[in-house]
Design a protein around this nucleic acid. Structure first.
Lengths: 234, 234
DNA sequence: CTGTATCCGTGTTGATACTG
DNA sequence: CAGTATCAACACGGATACAG
């Protein structure tokens, strides 16, 4: 039993890697496997349990999630903790270095937003929507604004604050916010990125806005999408 | 014959993808397959031929390289061109949007440079070394400097210019440079990143420096490595 | 010489079912 | 809830043969 485990681990360590001193290639050795970056993304706004990760990563299978978490833990990117009683659940959390990978998501997201084949009508996790706000905010439009905004998505709430051209977001209770968007992540995304009328989404029943409507309109206008790339001969 | 090709293409189009509206996930659909980003990296400093790519990507096989180039071309990231006679060779080149992926390499490289398991003694392609200079230059140290530097790596030459805290680099002839490093990419990397004595590398015969030695020392000092990440319990 | 196509052994991935 | 076991499908990489 023990021996089997050891050989298995040896196998994992000897897994495919690029023989390349380039730091980018090394990054791909660390997080280039399928699903790895998306697992990190889901942890980017704080610790999560195995099943949280599973439900927010449409399509990942349990064994692959296990493997990725083991690999990320071995690499020093993720750490697993047992929550103190009474919660007593096990959670996975990024290490400090793990959290520092956020610029990777921003550069990937900003670039891919220009893709001609990007389909924003697919499922959208709450975390990725929140992260996308950090990525896509237009500092020029946001400068001078100070808006406290809340989001209620399923069971979870996120609190954000626009200031100095940036937006800070964390998983937190909705105290002291000027504005709350409640709904599914895709619905909120339609309001912010597809530019759909807030009132239309509300009558559809997929979105609810509490607070100053004008402020809400101003808020969603802070997140313009870049123009699609023009593909020669495409 | 034709039918087979069509079914194969249909298969390729229907290949594994994340069902996720997040732009980061879409980026991974585009460039998340093994080798894809490294192929793009090799094209980042200008067009290359199939065999250039092969020799600079240690370990990629011809059929995988073909598949990646097809996929990247279909995605609008790479375009293939036939060089005019007499060269008449076929080359692969990034589209404008493809070139805009450079920040992805920078964020990956900067982050992975902190990895405790990064081994800089592996093979190093000329392009990745040149790109790493753009990524790792310390603007604070570089500000106020104006240095024209050349690199001769194998058959190729690269010309760089430090100015305004940045370094611009292109594949170009070595006219008008203050300083030339000649040698293999790993040797130059040892001088710049491992902080090895230039004179030691020269007596070893792996590096040659033409130009002002003091300037060379100043140049290599512009590229400090970040501290390794501390892994809790690692 | 520069790629492309095909075959094949092997390892990785993912769907389903199952266990503590 | 948090994973493990099993198995089929696929992707990878190497070799080789082929085309312009």
């Amino acid at each position: 039993m023990k021996l089997e485990k050891i050989t298995k681990e040896a196998k994992n360590n000897a897994r495919r890697h690029y023989d390349d001193a380039c730091a980018t290639a090394h990054a791909l050795d660390l997080v280039g496997e399928r699903w790895a970056l998306l697992v990190i993304r889901e942890l980017m706004l704080g610790p999560r349990r195995f099943s949280d990760l599973r439900t927010n990563l449409p399509g990942i299978s349990a064994n692959v999630l296990t493997q990725r978490l083991e690999g990320l833990e071995a690499a020093g990117i993720v750490i697993r903790r047992k929550l103190p009683p009474p919660a007593a659940a096990q959670v996975y959390e990024l290490t400090e270095w793990g959290y520092q990978s956020e610029p990777i998501f921003q550069s990937l997201g900003r670039w891919a937003a220009r893709s001609p084949t990007h389909d924003p009508s697919l499922p959208f996790s709450a975390v990725s929507l929140m992260l996308s706000l950090r990525t896509m905010i237009d500092p020029a439009r946001a400068r001078g604004r100070d808006i406290r905004v809340g989001f209620r998505i399923g069971e979870e709430t996120y609190a954000g604050r626009v200031s100095e051209g940036q937006i800070a977001i964390e998983r937190a209770a909705l105290d002291n916010v000027d504005l709350v968007f409640s709904g599914t992540a895709p619905a909120i995304a339609r309001a912010i990125y597809a530019g759909q009328e807030l009132s239309a989404l509300e009558s559809e029943g997929v979105l609810q806005i509490d607070g100053d409507r004008t402020l809400a309109k101003r808020f969603v206008s802070l997140f313009p999408l870049p123009p699609k790339a023009e593909i020669p001969g495409g």
